[in-house]
Design a protein around this nucleic acid. Structure first.
Lengths: 342, 342
DNA sequence: CCGCAATTTGAAACCGTTTTGGCTATCTGA
DNA sequence: TCAGATAGCCAAAACGGTTTCAAATTGCGG
C-alpha cells in the first residue's frame, strides 16, 4: 500500500493525502479525518526510502565505532550510552546507525557517511586530546555532538561531559577528610580526555593539602579487572602501601577489591576504595545500599541527553553549539572508612 | 556532485555512467576507465537514499533491542555481538540499525521496520521459549536470523547457537572426573533458551553418573556479580556445601569467587569454579593463562557469522534456512582442582 | 450580486539513482 | 554485399514520496 494507491482509494490526489497525513493546515478537517482513518485501516506507512529521497534528510544518526587491535570502544559503558541515545532516536523516528570500522578507516567513514547522505549527524565517542575528528567534522559540515570533550581543539562544538575533574577532586577530598594520606589512583588510559581530567582533579586535591604526587601509586591502564588487581597487588606489597584507592571504573575496582581480600585485608576498614560508577544497568553497584563508595553519573542519561542535543542541532542548522557539564554525585558506600592508624 | 553532473562533465548519459560504475558489461572498457577516473577525481559517491529508492532495497539490517524494566538485553554480551556483526555489515556496505524500543512495542517495531522499508532483515536476540517473534517475522516476511534458538517454534528458521547443552555437560563431567560430587549450578534466567539448555546439559551429566539433582544448589537469576556472590555465600554456609560451582557467566563467577575468598577459602583448591566465557574483548579471562576454567565461545565470532548468514539469506530470498551450532571449547584455568577430601 | 480573499484541492516537478527499451554503429558470416 | 548479430550508448520511465505552483471552490463585505 503506497501513497498513490491510498489516494485513489479515497478519490483524492496524492498531494492532498500527503498533506493530510503530515498535518499541513491547508487541508479540510473532514477530509483529513477521512484520510487518517483510511490510512489506519489499510495500515499505510509511508516508505522511509522515498521520504528520505524527497526531503533530502537521512532521518538517521550515526555512531562510528572504531575497532582497533587495542583500546576498543566496544565496552560496557558504550552499550549503556547507546541504549540511552537509542531511546531518544526511537521516540523521534530517527534511525540509529552503528558503523563498526577498522580504526584507520574512521576518517573515511565520516566522509562517506556525509557524502552518501546516510546520516544527518553523528555522535563522537571517546574523545582524545587534540582529537582530529572535531576538525574533520567541522570541515565536512556534518553536525555532531561529542560525548566528552577534546581538549586542544580550538573550534567551538557541542559536547556533553561529566565533570570528571570535580568528581575526582571531591572523591580525593573525601578520602583526605577520612585521614587517608596515601591515596592511589587507578586511572584509565591517559590519552583519553576523561582520564586526564580525573587525574587533574585528584592531583589538585592532593596538592591543595600540600601532599606530594607519588607516581608509584598512580597507574594508567585499560580499565579491566585484571589490571586493577595487578596494580593493587603491587602497590599493597610495596614498602609504603596506600590506604585508599581511587579507581576510574567499577571493573577495575573489583580487581582492587580482590587484591585487598587476597591479602587478608578488609575493604572499607583496612583499605578504602572509591570508584567511578557509570550506573550501568547490568553492573549495579549493590542494590539497596551501595557496595562501593562512588562518584556516580548515569552514562545512559548522558546518552539520552547527547541524542537530544544532536537532534536539536540537526533541526537548527547554524545554531550555536551547546555544552552540557553533568555533575557526578558522591555516593557513600561500604568501601570507605577512616584511615587506619599506623 | 551527483550522477547527472558527473555524466555531463564526461559528456555521457547518466545511464552509461551508472553502468560503468556498477560494472555492467555493456560499456566499453575505455569509457569505463574514464568514468572511474572521473568519479575518483571528483570523489563522487552515489547517494544512498536514491539507490535505496531505486533498487527497492534498504541496504540495512536491523537489531531490535527491547528495553524493559528488568531483563535488559543491553549487556556486555550484546555489545560484543554487535561489534562482530557490525564488522561484517561494514565490509558489505550495509548499515546496521539499532532500534531501542519499549518491550511492549517490539512487535509493532518489526512490522514498521518491514512496511516502511527500513531494513532488509533483522537479527533476533535473546530468544525465549516459544518465542513469538519467530512466527511474527515469518508472517510479515522479513528475513531473520536468530542468535540462539527458540525451542517450541514449529517453523523452520535460520539460527546460530552455541551448543550450550554439550558445553555444560562436558564442564560437569570435568568436575565429576575431578572427584566433585556436589556441584552447584549458578544459571541465568531460565526463561531464556540458552539457560534451559545449559541446565539440561548439567542435569544430564549428573544423572548419567547416578547423582541426584539438588535444587538447593541450583539457582537461576540474572547474571550479575552480586547475584553470584549471594548464591555462593548462601550455599557455602549451608550444611552440605558444594565443592564446585558451574556459572553461566564470568560476571557471576566473579561474585562466586568473592564469596569463596571472603570465607577464607581458596578457589581452585578448596572450591572449584567453571564459568562460561563469551570471550568478550574487554572482559578477558586472564591473559596468558586463564584465571577461570571455562567453556569458551566467542560471542563476537557469533556476531560475525550471524551477520554473514543474514546477508546471504537476504541475497537468496526463498533459500532454505541455515542452522549453525558452534561448539564451546573447554579451557582449563586455575579455578579448578581435585575435590577436597572430606 | 459582484469582486476579492481565503480555503481547499490537484497537476506536475523534483529528489538521485536504476533499469527498461530503444537506437545507431560496427562486426560477422554467407 | 547484405542481413543479422553485437557492442555501446542514450532517453525516459520508474522508485514513492514532498513541494511548488496553479486552479477551483467557497466565504465575505459592500
Amino acid at each position: 500500500m503506497n501513497l498513490k494507491e491510498l489516494a485513489s482509494k479515497l478519490g483524492l490526489s496524492p498531494t492532498t493525502v500527503s498533506r493530510a497525513l503530515n498535518g499541513y493546515p491547508e487541508v479540510n478537517e473532514s477530509t483529513r479525518e477521512r484520510v487518517m482513518a483510511a490510512a489506519k485501516r489499510h495500515n499505510y506507512r509511508p516508505n522511509t526510502r522515498a521520504i528520505r529521497l524527497a526531503t533530502g534528510r537521512a532521518l538517521a544518526v550515526g555512531h562510528v565505532i572504531p575497532v582497533a587491535t587495542r583500546h576498543e570502544i566496544v565496552n560496557p559503558v558504550f552499550a549503556d550510552f547507546i541504549a540511552g541515545a537509542g531511546e531518544v532516536y526511537s521516540r523521534n523516528d530517527y534511525d540509529m546507525i552503528l558503523s563498526v570500522v577498522p580504526d584507520d578507516q574512521e576518517e573515511d567513514t565520516y566522509r562517506a557517511l556525509k557524502s552518501k547522505g546516510n546520516v544527518d549527524g553523528v555522535i563522537v565517542h571517546a574523545p582524545r586530546m587534540n582529537d582530529p575528528r572535531i576538525a574533520l567534522l567541522h570541515a565536512i559540515g556534518l553536525p555532531f555532538v561529542v560525548h566528552g570533550r577534546a581538549t586542544g581543539s580550538g573550534l567551538p562544538y557541542s559536547w556533553l561531559d561529566v565533570n570528571n575533574r570535580r568528581a575526582f577532586h571531591r572523591a580525593t577530598e573525601f578520602l583526605l577528610d577520612l585521614g587517608h594520606r596515601r591515596i592511589a589512583l587507578i586511572n584509565g588510559l591517559e590519552f583519553m580526555d576523561f582520564a586526564i581530567r580525573r587525574r587533574a582533579g585528584y592531583a589538585e586535591a592532593l596538592t591543595q593539602r600540600g601532599l606530594p604526587l607519588d607516581p608509584a601509586i598512580m597507574t594508567s591502564d585499560e580499565m579491566t579487572e585484571v589490571s586493577g588487581y595487578r596494580a593493587a597487588r603491587r602497590m599493597l606489597a610495596a614498602p609504603a602501601p596506600p590506604t585508599a584507592f581511587l579507581c576510574a571504573s567499577m571493573i577495575s575496582g573489583m580487581g582492587v577489591r580482590r587484591a585487598i581480600q587476597e591479602l587478608g585485608l578488609t575493604m572499607g576498614r583496612d583499605v578504602s576504595v572509591i570508584i567511578h560508577d557509570d550506573d550501568l544497568s547490568y553492573l549495579k553497584n549493590g542494590e539497596d545500599l551501595p557496595i562501593f563508595t562512588a562518584t556516580r553519573s548515569s552514562v545512559r542519561e548522558a546518552g539520552r541527553q547527547s541524542a537530544d542535543m544532536l537532534l536539536t542541532l540537526i533541526g537548527n542548522p547554524g545554531g550555536v553549539p551547546e555544552q552540557r557539564l553533568l555533575e557526578a554525585e558522591l555516593i557513600i558506600g561500604q568501601s570507605t572508612g577512616p584511615a587506619p592508624r599506623t
